[in-house]
Design a protein around this nucleic acid. Structure first.
Length: 740
DNA sequence: GAAGCCCTTGTTTTT
DNA sequence: CAAGGGCTTC
């Protein structure tokens, strides 16, 4: 019977997918190429495990990196089976660790009402700490300390386990220790702490560890290539000896090394879990052949890979269009013209994506789109819950549940202005450090002498009293209105309407919020009748999900984003812009070991976003940081076989023959030339700044500087591998050919 | 406590 | 270039 019913579930899977889905209860590593039906395999496997009785909703742990992916899985799973998805431990690493810590806050040594610090909150704590310790920004930059702390935690290391190799490092470690105790005192945890603390509890608490190890017999992980050391260790600990770990990932799409992701976890997994060979999903259901050829060719240049080659049953499709524009403005104009043409042909804007390596590149594109009146959506701005007005409002809520949260207190003690200035705050801080208490307690003790402080204390106490009595939306309303926050934005001059709208939106979110969806209701340990329940869930969700990453929804709009942000998405047409040496691959990356391979994976991700049509564009000249940069086309373009490319000229979409550019294996650094240095005349004995030229001895280069001479001109040319050369046109002209 | 000025700084960013 | 932070000034 079960086999019969599972047949429907398995229908339509290809043989590799089928093998993965029905893999026995043993560890498996699935190498899932881009567009190979990875999510389908994961969800179908869960459904299959449930339907065949191999697992129950309680015995499955399914982990993703993003909330989006978790929701997607949830959605697809409930479409496959009538299961109570909520009862299942399906969520993000951080979401699940949060759930774990809420359930076991006592074992974890955390207050019941502990709050989560997002990156901004964390930076504020770090700054406060450095000030308190009297360490100047020049000695330790707040951001560097923040990065240090997070990196250590992601490696599973507490300050006590670190040894300093120099005085500066010693200071950093001391700060790390001080930071942790500060957070502990205030009852707050940062993102990395959610993971580390969970891991430590599981490690040290035998009862809990055994409970969870016995509970989960199937552990499934998505995007395994992005796991860091700690996440790997956490998974291994939870899985214990007997759980079947099903890891799905693609080493070629590992693009978060800078955040601690370790691709090596994939090979480590193979060894440590005794998996002899990964299951490869190589059939691609997304892109046409030419695009896959390009992707395969580019990624083949990477040395350290598990190895995989995408293929498709759809035809080769159109060739990939390549355009080198004179400058970034023309590049943008080209994109706009093509977008318009595609739209006229019936392609929706939302089916087109413009990708770039860094956010700074969006500006020029945006301007061109704006002038052309094309609707567009940019991913990457401030998220909803990161906006200051939202954070202010939530800070009131946080104080209501946990007044020792100094961060929250400092954020709103004088917003709206209530006459508690720098002076008064310093007094409170002094009192707090003297008695070793929180700012809230210090402020309370000063309230008798200061009516302004007393008013603030009274406001918060009022909110506190309400948490036990009123519903979440009512409490939210109190936080927004009773605090005077709404009135503050109403009376402020300038464009505050947006902020007012956002506060109203926040209220709507509180009304619509369903705390049950956080999954706690299925946990016997958690009392959902506790009035705090909804508030804590809401605040945690705000920190962990932070809301949509884009502005304006609904309408048909062109999608603009970084390549990183595009991971997991797909478009009919993709414009991959700014393909220049120094930009993509970025100059930065070339300095570090294996940096170039990571950039190449990024390129691979970018190419595989396109279904039918792909444009690769670059500019000879680009304004960056207020300086004109000249650069050669990205080496990645040269790694694509000529046969799938179609070169377009800068001005008209006519095919032009392009000279074969050879010998481009070493880093080319994009070179800069100050605008001020640029002479009025643009012609230097037949050459121009930014031109790509070929020299019979030095190979291909870009003209980065030029000056007139009595006879001819002197050119400074970056030949990349061959170095930067100064040539006189009088002698060199015959040896130089202009490429573009 | 707000406005204005100068200075620095500048990849990517799932949680 | 242009945004954000720190500082001064009113």
């Amino acid at each position: 019977m079960e086999i019969l019913s599972s047949a429907g579930l398995l229908a339509g899977l290809n043989s590799e997918q089928l093998a993965a889905v029905t893999w026995p209860a043993q560890p498996a590593l699935v190498l899932a190429g881009a567009g190979s039906g990875k999510t389908r395999v994961l969800t179908t496997r869960i459904a299959w495990l449930l339907q065949t009785g191999q697992a129950s909703v309680h015995s499955i742990l399914a982990v993703t990196f993003t909330n989006k992916a978790a929701k997607e899985m949830q959605l697809r799973l409930s479409a496959l089976l009538p299961v109570s998805v909520r009862a299942m431990w399906l969520g993000t690493f951080h979401g699940l660790c949060h759930r774990f810590l809420r359930l076991h806050h006592q074992e974890a040594g955390l207050p019941k009402t502990f709050q989560i610090l997002d990156i901004g909150d964390q930076l504020a704590v770090v700054k406060r700490l450095l000030k308190q310790l009297n360490i100047a920004d020049e000695v330790i930059a707040p951001r560097s300390l923040q990065g240090f702390i997070n990196a250590q935690k992601e490696n599973g290391l507490r300050a006590s386990r670190l040894t300093a190799r120099d005085p500066h490092e010693r200071l950093m470690i001391e700060c790390y220790a001080a930071y942790d105790s500060l957070c502990q005192n205030e009852g707050v945890v940062d993102f990395a702490e959610l993971m580390l603390r969970s891991y430590e509890i599981l490690q040290s608490n035998d009862v809990l560890r055994c409970h969870y190890q016995n509970r989960f017999n199937h552990v499934l992980i998505d995007e395994f290539q992005d796991t860091n050391k700690l996440q790997y260790a956490w998974l291994k600990l939870l899985a214990g000896e007997h759980a079947a770990v099903f890891a799905v990932g693609d080493d070629d799409q590992s693009i978060y090394r800078f955040r601690g992701a370790e691709v090596a976890n994939m090979t480590r997994f193979l060894h440590e879990f005794g998996v002899s060979e990964p299951i490869r999903l190589e059939q691609n259901y997304r892109s046409v052949g030419n695009i896959l050829t390009a992707a395969n060719a580019v990624i083949a240049h990477n040395a350290s890979r598990l190895g995989k080659n995408l293929h498709t049953e759809s035809g080769s499709g159109e060739k990939i269009r390549v355009l080198q524009a004179i400058n970034d403005i023309e590049e943008a104009q080209f994109v706009v013209d093509e977008v318009k043409a595609l739209h006229r042909e019936g392609l929706d804007y939302m089916q087109m994506g413009i990708l770039y390596r860094s956010n700074a590149q969006s500006r020029v594109l945006e301007q061109a789109l704006f002038r052309a009146g094309i609707p567009y959506k940019i991913y990457g701005g401030l998220r909803f819950y990161e906006r200051q007005e939202i954070k202010h409002a939530l800070a009131y809520l946080r104080l209501a549940v946990n007044p020792d949260d100094d961060n929250a207190l400092l954020r709103v003690i004088n917003v709206p202005t209530r006459g508690i200035g720098t002076r008064t705050i310093e007094n409170i801080q002094a009192a707090a450090s003297q008695t070793g208490t929180s700012l809230w307690q210090a402020a309370s003790s000063l309230a008798a002498k200061n009516s302004k402080i007393a008013a603030f204390i009274h406001l918060i106490e009022n909110l506190q009293a309400q948490t036990a009595q009123v519903s979440l939306p009512e409490l939210m309303a109190a936080a927004i209105y009773d605090s005077g926050l709404m009135e503050y934005y109403r009376t402020q001059k300038g464009e505050q309407q947006e902020r007012i709208n956002n506060l109203e939106e926040l209220l709507n979110a509180a009304v619509a919020f369903k705390p049950q969806e956080s999954g706690f209701d299925s946990e016997p340990e958690y009392d959902e009748n506790d009035p705090l329940f909804a508030v804590l869930s809401f605040l945690s969700t705000a920190s962990l999900e932070a809301g949509e990453h884009q502005a304006g929804q609904g309408e048909d709009a062109l999608q603009l984003m970084t390549v990183h942000a595009a991971k997991g998405l797909e478009f009919d047409a993709v414009f991959l812009t700014g393909l220049e040496e120094g930009l993509f691959p970025s100059e930065y990356s070339m300095a570090e070991k294996d940096g170039l391979e990571e950039e190449r994976r990024l390129m691979y991700v970018a190419i595989t976003r396109a279904r039918k049509r792909l444009y690769l564009t670059m500019a000879q000249q680009r304004l960056l940081h207020g300086q004109t940069h000249f650069a050669l086309p990205s080496r990645f373009v040269d790694e694509i076989p000529e046969c799938v490319l179609q070169y377009l000229s800068a001005h008209k979409n006519t095919l032009v023959a392009r000279q074969q550019i050879t010998q481009r294996t070493n880093p080319f650094h994009s070179s800069r030339s100050k605008l001020a240095d640029t002479p009025a005349s643009t012609d230097f004995d037949g050459f121009q700044l930014g031109q790509n030229v070929h020299h019979e001895r030095f190979g291909t280069g870009v003209i980065i500087e030029a000056s007139h001479k009595a006879e001819g001109a002197r050119l400074t040319i970056n030949f990349g591998k061959q170095g930067i050369k100064e040539l006189d046109t009088v002698f060199a002209k015959s040896k130089l050919t202009i490429i573009s």
